[in-house]
């Protein structure tokens, strides 16, 4: 037995080391993905018997107004969330100096990312409050009428996204600050000697060197946009009249909420969300694969 181990340990050791982590991961993450896909072909209230309904859930989705609202909002989230990347770069450039106390400034600017989205949501609900929120004080200052952003079907999603951009910009900022630390100063000096300045220098010399930071910023921002659940749940609970729903939230609402437990229908929504996300996941894995081969 001992000899068997000694001779084969290089083959056995990886199995041993992988087993606990892989087991947990397969049980809690990998298998449930397939189970969800399976459940999406059933009508099920979570307790009673499952009833096989084929693609009926997906057919129903095609005619579901709320589903289209959610998809539309997800697209708006995706597009507007991307603003966090240039905004983060802008803040990073602003803070990338060597003055006294700058490190404290950098950490304080990073603050919004460290706190929970629940707190961010509460803070912003209050900020938008029509009777005494700061947002309306500012509107009033400019002579505009107060607006109840979170109760307005047309504005509510934008209001929530702005709340989400606050921590996300902080995240992108920290990525760029780290990236800027590693920028090759000789290249910049050389470019400066050639009279490159300002935006031109930024575009042609700095940004290409920041590409790894931009890539990570894009990945986390896209994933963040598609995962948007917390803020919607805290700030509006999907309202008014379901106009701020996103797929992640709508799924939750269908699967367990006061409207009943439609697990199969919820699972079908989750599958659609996963399908959208797969585009990015596959892209990310493809890039990783190429990088691995590069070694």
């Amino acid at each position: 037995m001992r000899d068997y181990w000694r001779i084969n340990q290089q083959r056995l050791a990886p199995v041993l080391f992988l087993m606990p982590g892989l087991l947990m991961f397969v049980v809690y993450v990998v298998i449930p993905i397939f189970q969800s896909v399976n459940i999406s072909f059933y009508a099920w209230d979570g307790l009673g018997e499952k009833e096989y309904v084929g693609i009926a859930n997906y057919v129903e989705l095609m005619d579901d107004e709320a589903f289209y609202t959610s998809i539309k909002n997800n697209v708006i989230w995706l597009v507007l969330y991307m603003l966090a990347i240039p905004a983060g770069l802008f803040v990073a450039l602003f803070l990338n100096q060597n003055v006294r106390g700058i490190r404290i400034y950098k950490s304080l600017f990073f603050f919004p990312f460290v706190i929970s989205q629940v707190v961010v949501g509460l803070v912003f609900s209050w900020f938008y409050d029509p009777s005494y929120g700061l947002f309306n004080k500012v509107l009033g200052f400019f002579g505009a009428d107060p607006m109840a952003i979170l109760a307005d079907e047309d504005w509510v999603t934008y209001g929530i996204i702005i709340a989400g951009l606050w921590p996300q910009t902080a995240y992108c900022m920290i990525l760029y600050l780290t990236g800027l630390n590693a920028v090759d100063s000789e290249q910049i000096e050389a470019a400066r000697l050639d009279n490159a300045k300002g935006l031109k220098l930024l575009w042609y010399i700095i940004l290409p060197q920041l590409r790894p930071a931009t890539f990570i910023a894009m990945v986390v921002t896209i994933i963040g946009a598609l995962r948007s659940f917390d803020l919607v749940s805290i700030m509006t609970n999907g309202g008014p009249w379901g106009s701020s729903r996103v797929l992640a939230f709508y799924m939750y609402e269908q699967a367990f909420s006061e409207y009943g437990f439609r697990m199969g229908y919820g699972a079908a929504i989750a599958v659609v969300l996963l399908a959208i996300m797969m585009i990015y996941i596959v892209g990310f894995l493809y890039k990783m694969y190429r990088d691995e081969r590069g070694y």
Binding site: V29, P32, I33, S36, R227, A255, A270, M277
Partner: peptide
């Protein structure tokens, strides 16, 4: 697995 949406795991 780390990137999948939580909702796909929720019910199971």
């Amino acid at each position: 697995g780390n990137f999948v949406p939580f909702q796909i795991l929720m019910v199971p």
